[in-house]
């Protein structure tokens, strides 16, 4: 919990207009341990630690929610499309099976 995780929200294209459909990627540095792997040095099983759920919230409305299991890769990427609907804030929240919660937000500023 104390560990600070790096995450990033990427929007493509960088300049977009109101009403345009843009590609949004959320990346996070997370180990995604399945609970089946072993530490090579200590030979002990690494306890499971994986992302449970991801939520994309845009201007107070959940546009996409995801239920995630452990078979996603290390440092996962989630890419979806989103319709830009005026100025606002996009917030991505994820929850971990150990109770870790992380939040990242990005301002949405359509031009033109």
């Amino acid at each position: 919990m104390a560990e600070e995780r790096k995450s990033l929200i990427k929007i493509k294209p960088k300049r977009y207009k109101d009403g345009e459909i843009v590609k949004v990627s959320f990346m996070v540095m997370h180990p995604m341990d399945t609970g089946m792997g072993k530490d090579k040095k200590t030979k002990k099983i690494i306890p499971a630690k994986y992302i449970n759920s991801v939520k994309f919230n845009y201007n107070g409305k959940d546009i996409t929610t995801m239920t995630v299991w452990e078979s996603l890769s290390v440092n996962p990427v989630f890419t979806i499309y989103m319709k830009v609907n005026g100025k606002g804030k996009l917030t991505v929240t994820y929850t971990d099976n150990t109770g870790e919660v992380h939040e990242k937000s990005k301002k949405i500023k359509p031009k033109g």
Partner: peptide, 13 residues
């Protein structure tokens, strides 16, 4: 509100 039905990620097999 997504505008397009698309999803992309990386998985373990």
């Amino acid at each position: 509100a997504n505008g397009k039905a698309y999803f992309s990620t990386r998985i373990k097999l």
